[in-house]
Design a protein around this nucleic acid. Structure first.
Lengths: 186, 186, 186, 186
DNA sequence: AATGAATGAGCTTTCATTCAT
DNA sequence: AATGAATGAAAGCTCATTCAT
């Protein structure tokens, strides 16, 4: 039981890491299996849909991981601006921790995947989950609902773009620069 | 002569289109060759480095294409804000024109590619080229140099992120919404 | 089980035969697979290193085959000279049996192979195995150790060279002529 | 004129070198052309039969080269034994000079080639040319004709075999050891 | 639930050669 | 005589998946 869980979990987290690092197509099933220490034939017991199913699960796992980061950043913050700043700093640290090639965990997982609507819809749902998480905190911290939703969307857009540029530059400074770009100064 | 140019050019533009639509790894050489009407063996004459070399050339071609869009948007504009707005509208149209799966032309080409420094550096150079193009117009339109560079960088970040979200939603509205998000609305 | 063995074994013996007949590079994987009745994808299960790994295994198999011939020739022989004579006659028969192009099984396998040290070292080891086998019999049949080793080495050299000339002439007589050339004819 | 000759010659010597080092199939035409500094389309003007014709020419060139070595070794020698010894020493030096992978120049060229009778017959002719060269010197130095031919053949066999073992060991000592193996000592 | 062998379509690339200029 | 582009067959290999145990 615990072993099963462990096998499935190892598969998901390993897949999430590798997909993020190299993209969906560039990551071979054999590589995931080897790194996770799972024998070849086992994958299809846990993920009957194979690679695609594993990718979807990995995306969900990553989404949960990111929501936790959002919560950790916003819960102790006295204002939306400070929460957002914490969030960007945390992402910069996360970026720095990971190895070289580094994409936004979600878009790497889902956009390089098969050209199926299932993948696109899943990506959309995950993005919305992140937006909703931020919007919730924004509202709690005093922003009116419409403004909260707009700010959360803007933040997601900015983070996605910054992650891309940070990757090209191999420099997390781009992520750290976001608050200055987004917050009205003075 | 013209035929030579034509063969190489057909290869580059076809590759640029397909890479943008499906990503580097998901696009087979056979597919590019077939669509371009170029026989299999000919590719390595024009691109001795094979797929990777073709991708780099396609990225350059796309960069030129985008710089032209930037120029078209900013040249007739009376202010940075209006230039930027034109630019986003043009990108939204471009997004709508392309078929289903749709990435920022540059990041699709370069981030899903081989995990090589050559690719990352190339992506960085292309991004910088786009930033410089926008910054030049910004300065010409009255922004001080530092501000112009900062705004150009912010715009690139925003466009990259918006493209990502637009793709997930299959909705170019995200690109059209950028000016409202970025411009201070007194 | 037996099937597994059978698949791998069929692969090895087929490869050994074809490599010997046409050389490493002139023998295509597709040809080996077709002749062995093994589907394309299966090879890399048994030989993760692909063609090179298969060639090394085929060399080992051939070495065992040759050692057996050496033993069969020397065991019943009353003297080194007669053992050697039997050995050359057996090789001549083997030569005659095989089809047209015909190399020393070992050198064909290993010298036309990749220019890697692994291959050269493997060839060296196989040659030494054959030399040792002959030297063992020589000593058993009364030759002092140093002399036994020298004779075994000379025999290997002679056999390799004779095989080459026999191939050019398409005539096993060269192999049969070896004893007369090597034995002191009072 | 001189340029043509030079082009053809460069092609032949380059091919001879590369074929000897890596074998017929492992040596690409592109590699030969590049190393010789000859443009792609030019080969078929000098060698209408392409790679095969070039290989045959390279074999002839090599044969002449070896005959010259034989003559240099035997002409000043007072006896067959000393001539042969000089010859082996010269070959050992030649072996040492060449780079790593190293086959008997003739067999490398012709046995790894296409499985055609033309190639086999050519190899046979070249071998005979070498045998005849040695036999001529042997007769001149006092051996009766039959004995001279037999000794020359034995020498060719021994040299071919020794070259093979020397290559596996990456050690020219095997070639230097030939006289002691072949000459009746005391 | 777990496994390692099997599978063949597909991959990128290299090959020797031919052709138009 | 000389050239660089064109050519497609074939190369070795990896892929995600299925199957028998």
């Amino acid at each position: 039981m615990q072993d099963d869980t462990s096998t499935r979990d190892r598969l998901v987290t390993t897949a999430a890491t590798l997909f993020r690092r190299k993209g969906y197509h560039a990551t071979g099933l054999a590589e995931i299996l080897a790194e996770a220490g799972v024998p070849k034939g086992s994958l299809y017991h846990h993920f009957p849909d194979g690679k695609a199913g594993l990718a979807l699960a990995a995306a969900d796992w990553t989404a949960g991981f990111l929501v936790r980061i959002i919560d950790d950043a916003f819960v102790p913050a006295p204002s939306y601006g400070e929460g957002m700043t914490h969030y960007c700093m945390k992402l910069a640290k996360l970026f720095q921790l990971s190895e070289a090639a580094n994409t936004c965990p979600i878009s790497a997982l889902l956009f390089d995947g098969p050209e199926s609507d299932a993948f696109r819809l899943h990506a959309n749902a995950v993005f919305q989950r992140l937006i909703d998480a931020v919007a919730g905190h924004a509202q709690r911290l005093g922003l009116p609902e419409a403004k909260a939703r707009a700010e959360a969307e803007t933040l997601l857009i900015a983070v996605e773009g910054a992650w891309t540029l940070a990757r090209a530059r191999r420099d997390p400074a781009v992520l750290r620069s976001l608050p200055a770009r987004l917050l009205p100064t003075g």
